[in-house]
Write a protein that binds this DNA or RNA. Sequence first.
RNA 1: UGUCCCAUUGUGUAAUGGCAGCACAGCAGAUUUUGGUUCUGUUAGUCUAGGUUCGAAUCCUGGUGGGACAACCA
Length: 570
Amino acid sequence: MDNSRHQNAEAEEKTLNFIEQIIEEEIAAGKNGGRVYTRFPPEPNGYLHIGHATSICLNFGLAAKYNGKCNLRFDDTNPSKEDVEYIDAIQADIQWLGFQWEGKALYASDYFRQLYDWAEKMIIEGKAYVDDQPAEVISAQRMSPTEPGVESPFRSRSAEENLDLFRRMRNGEFKEGSRVLRAKIDMASPNMLMRDAIMYRIMYTPHHRTGNQWCIYPMYDFTHGQSDYLEGITHSVCTMEFEVHRPLYNWFLDQLIDTEYRPRQIEFARRNVSHTVMSKRKLLELVQKKYVSGWDDPRMPTISGLRRRGYTPESIRMFAEKVGVARREIVVDIALLEHCIREHLNLTAQRVMAVLDPVKVVISNYPKGQTEFVQIENNPEDPDAGMRNVAFSGELYIEREDFMEDAPKKFFRLTPGGEVRLKGAYIIKCTGVEKDRAGSIQTIYCTYDPDSKSGSGHEASNRKVKGTLHWVSASDTIDAEVRIYDRLFKDEDPDGHKDADFKEFINEDSLKTIKGCKLESGLKTAKPGDRFQFQRLGYFCVDKDSTEGNLVFNRTVALKDTWAKMQNEK
RNA sequence: UGUCCCAUUGUGUAAUGGCAGCACAGCAGAUUUUGGUUCUGUUAGUCUAGGUUCGAAUCCUGGUGGGACAACCA
């Protein structure tokens, strides 16, 4: 029984996704000499997000699995949308995720010369022509997917004239938008992209790498397959929206390449995540309209946002692995991402005492002015994490919500006359409270049982204490600011609305800042990027906004809290 | 009224003509110095109608539903 279950688990791990199946079949058939070479080809026009992260994991993961290589290639053929800022950010994000591309980062713009020569070759062979019509006319002539298009009157120009015009395009003799180079394919094709796709357009925008060297730029379709070919890519993995481009991808290679080797385009489905947006256009809008603080706002699904929030590379890789690969539109529940980060942080994050909403506890029978140190495990999941000393005294802070005067039966924490254990220290009993005029509790009075110290051997003392509370000694705390992020969007998914104005979808409570939190003094030395588990409250990461005297924490994710859930259900 | 892609529990993903499995979420219980973690159990699925077959989630046909394509974007 156990044995068979174990075997099933192993079998499951070995399950191949459909891309791996394709690759293994090709390897078995001896294609490309068994070589596997992939690439990740972002356009540098925005920051990478969790969707790119899964694509990165796929491409680099395939290369790693089959002892191959993976390139990073910037698809920088449209200077009007691109910027070096993004190039740096993209490289940093990929490396942070734990991947390293083969050699130096590559650029489609590296191939501008080669692509130009190929374009001339096609012109000479009568496979491409210069069209003098404006964009609207060309677009109208393509007609609709349900009816054949109309051929351009310039379609039958001589090769000599086309070559002359194309060279003059390159030399800057024509106005932007006045002429394009088109492939001569089939204006009646049911695939709109095959209706004489545009290969080159005139653009006087300086390019972030080639400057003013070129004033004509190749289109995606005339660039991508050939770039793959030049780099020796075997598997060009992209998202489903490029599926209709595949015939064009192959068509261009067929015109230009006479080797047996061809890169192969394989499409898989974009992996959307619930409660967020993934389109670059919309993310840019969130940044520009200042709905968020920037690309790395911890509520953003960008890699930099997730990083700042406290997500680990391991958790994102685990997410990509668990989501899998398919060929249909999907929306992954964000709960899976949250599961992955909890799983990793549970194993690695140091536990720490932190009180977000402090209320004072005075232990009346504890010797006045005395402080002792109690030993507490740094991480019960990790035996190597060791112990630390935490100051304990007669004046403490506990979480305000951990005390209730009229508590329901299922409340396990402190109540008048009730007992709880203070984590790592003693059992205390509540003897009374002091309130201000408004009736809000100022101080909780308790007595402690000196025989109940953790690890003393007398802990049990013949009684069972249901609750355990976190605390900090009033004599030994540091103050901190804690930022709690909820989902940026309400339940309704703005990604589903083509022209959504985000205002109506944004959850106004998505960011809550709590000041005056009390932390154990050991956190003095915490640095931006350090991650902790605040007992019962969740996982937190030190933010870059922290200063010497004021630590700022972002809550990465809350712990599961069944008590809170019970409360919500009422 | 075109071409192409897709349809397995709430979500994601396996099963490649032979026992519908796994994960997340949910529910119940055990353990627990934090109502967490860990462990155990459990609810729930092949879009639909035909066909082929000893046998269909899988192959075929029709239907339904979802998606992509009509940028000088990628």
